[in-house]
């Protein structure tokens, strides 16, 4: 069978579908001071997965606020800098009006994902971190 680390080179999704791959990618991103990119990406996925039925409205609002505050509010943060102003305004509006929808972070997540696919992921595949692991 194909070793996992070769699969990681196939696509960003293959990498993010494997726990060891995620850990290695996180180590690499932390060295580059952009570990928040990955945490934000997973936070968006986790937020979308919250079931409206089994999760209290209050909890969803609190979580949406926490994601907004930690990653988007500070315009100098690594995540915030990669998200389009219109996308940030949309999320801010959702939080302020308390209109909390499962897909409210989807666009922001896509923007961060594109950035990782075009930038940090190919750099990771050429990094010492990855090459030493393989």
């Amino acid at each position: 069978p194909t070793p996992p680390y070769l699969k990681w080179a196939e696509s960003l999704h293959s990498l993010l579908d494997d726990q060891d791959g995620i850990n290695l990618f996180r180590t690499f991103l932390q060295q580059e001071n952009c570990g928040d990119l990955l945490d934000f990406w997973f936070a968006c996925s986790g937020f979308r997965k919250l079931e409206p039925s089994d999760s209290k409205v209050e909890k969803r609002l609190k979580l949406a606020k926490a994601i907004y505050k930690k990653y988007i509010l500070d315009n100098n943060g690594i995540v915030s800098r990669q998200i389009k102003p219109a996308t940030k305004s949309f999320i801010k509006d959702c939080v302020l009006r308390q209109q909390i929808e499962p897909d409210m972070f989807d666009q922001a997540q896509m923007e961060i994902q594109s950035m990782m696919e075009d930038n940090t992921y190919p750099v990771f595949l050429k990094s010492d971190t990855y090459l030493e692991y393989t």
């Binding site: 995620i22 996925s45 986790g46 997965k49």
Partner: peptide
């Protein structure tokens, strides 16, 4: 009551793939 950080961590962990 969960702190915001705990809530965030729980959310991030929930999206991670399970160990194969």
């Amino acid at each position: 009551i969960d702190s915001e950080d705990d809530l965030l961590q729980e959310c991030i962990s929930s999206a991670m793939p399970k160990k194969k």
